[in-house]
Write a protein that binds this DNA or RNA. Sequence first.
DNA 1: AGCACATGCAAAGAAATGTTAGCAGGTGCT
DNA 2: AGCACCTGCTAACATTTCTTTGCATGTGCT
Lengths: 105, 105
Amino acid sequence: MLTLATLANPHRLRVVAVLAGGRKYVSQLARDMGISRALLQVHLKKLEAAGLVSAQLEISPDGKAMKFYEVTRFAVHLTPESIAAVVPEMTGTDTARGRDEKGTV
Amino acid sequence: MLTLATLANPHRLRVVAVLAGGRKYVSQLARDMGISRALLQVHLKKLEAAGLVSAQLEISPDGKAMKFYEVTRFAVHLTPESIAAVVPEMTGTDTARGRDEKGTV
DNA sequence: AGCACATGCAAAGAAATGTTAGCAGGTGCT
DNA sequence: AGCACCTGCTAACATTTCTTTGCATGTGCT
């Protein structure tokens, strides 16, 4: 769910696409994509929560704090069977709402 | 987008999982899943629009009209690369909003 | 001090999605 | 006729998701 819901958004899909070409810090990425930094930040947070990207905070030579993001090497295979295999597991107790099947489905 | 957004929903994921076990008609499926027929119908429509399921309207021996649904044999592979390959294509003109990358990404 | 650049967060409004309730139609059986 | 099934639709409401706006922090340079 988490992985799918996260990728089911044009902005986030683009972020992944751009980061696939190399790491970038958020302000830079925002300019490249032509969207506001605030908006990008929200999406980056979701991508990170889903484990699709990761970040490192670095200090540039001139002292600026810059947060670099890069894509995770994920691979999700979606087929009726793979879904059928995972869905039953997210039925009960605490697994019903808000789950992450990343790497499985 | 369409495929991902469609699968990014617990109900629809369950529908796919259940139908992976064989075709079913909607009232039956609704009972099996424990959700209202109206709700199921909406989700089935989206799944069908995304090409993930297909339907056949059949008349039972006793004259009842029954709509059977079955899953499509789809296979979507999600990786940073596959996404990077498709995203650029949905940038311009009419492709920006509401696209379907099924079978590609 | 004032400007340019970097990050981070949250409230509020806008838009998209999901869900329910209620209606319509049809067949066959008692 | 009345009941038990089947399908299909839509208007209204509820909820979630997205986006903007505005403010906070910090650094270095002129």
